[in-house]
């Protein structure tokens, strides 16, 4: 165990070199980075409340805009789906219309042919009675 005591002393020698430059956390004092000039420091400090408020406002605006964008995106997707559905419906309707128009033409042709036939037959009867 004495060997470990010596090893721990060596450990502290190695790990605590220049430890006076590193204040203990428990003491509450800390060494920050390079000193900022005192007048500039005062100016920065006085502006800080406004800057933080501005930043907070900007952050709120950004998050609101993001939410709006997300809503718009979802609405856009929904609209795209509706458009797609309506397009499909329209295509089906167009096909149906074509079929119906064809049938109508056919029926009109047949009806005309029948009317013509009847008219011919009536004309023949009239000729015979003369």
């Amino acid at each position: 165990m004495e060997r470990y005591e010596r090893a721990l002393v060596d450990r502290d020698r190695a790990e605590q070199l220049h430890s006076e430059l590193f204040p203990a956390v428990a003491d509450g004092g800390l060494s920050l980075g390079p000193e900022i000039g005192s007048s500039r420091d005062e100016e920065t400090t006085s502006l800080l409340p406004q800057m933080r408020q501005l930043l907070a406002q900007r952050d709120t605006t950004i998050s609101q805009l993001k939410e709006e964008r997300a809503t718009h995106m979802s609405q856009q997707v929904h609209l795209n789906d509706v458009i797609l559905g309506l397009t499909l419906e329209r295509n089906v309707m167009e096909d149906k219309l074509k079929v119906l128009q064809r049938e109508y033409k056919e029926l009109v042709t047949r009806w005309l042919a029948k009317a013509q036939q009847e008219a011919d037959s009536m004309n023949r009867d009239v000729e015979q009675h003369r």
Binding site: E15, Q16, L17, H18, S19, L21, F22, P23, A24, V25, L30, S31, L32, G33, P34, I36, L48, M51, R52, L55
Partner: peptide
């Protein structure tokens, strides 16, 4: 002895990078 560097994302824009460096024991 520790030098802790704090993420720059946590600082107000324009604050010097060295500000986010803490030395402590």
């Amino acid at each position: 002895n520790v030098t802790l560097t704090v993420d720059q994302k946590l600082f107000i824009p324009g604050v010097p990078a060295e500000t986010g460096s803490l030395n402590f024991r």
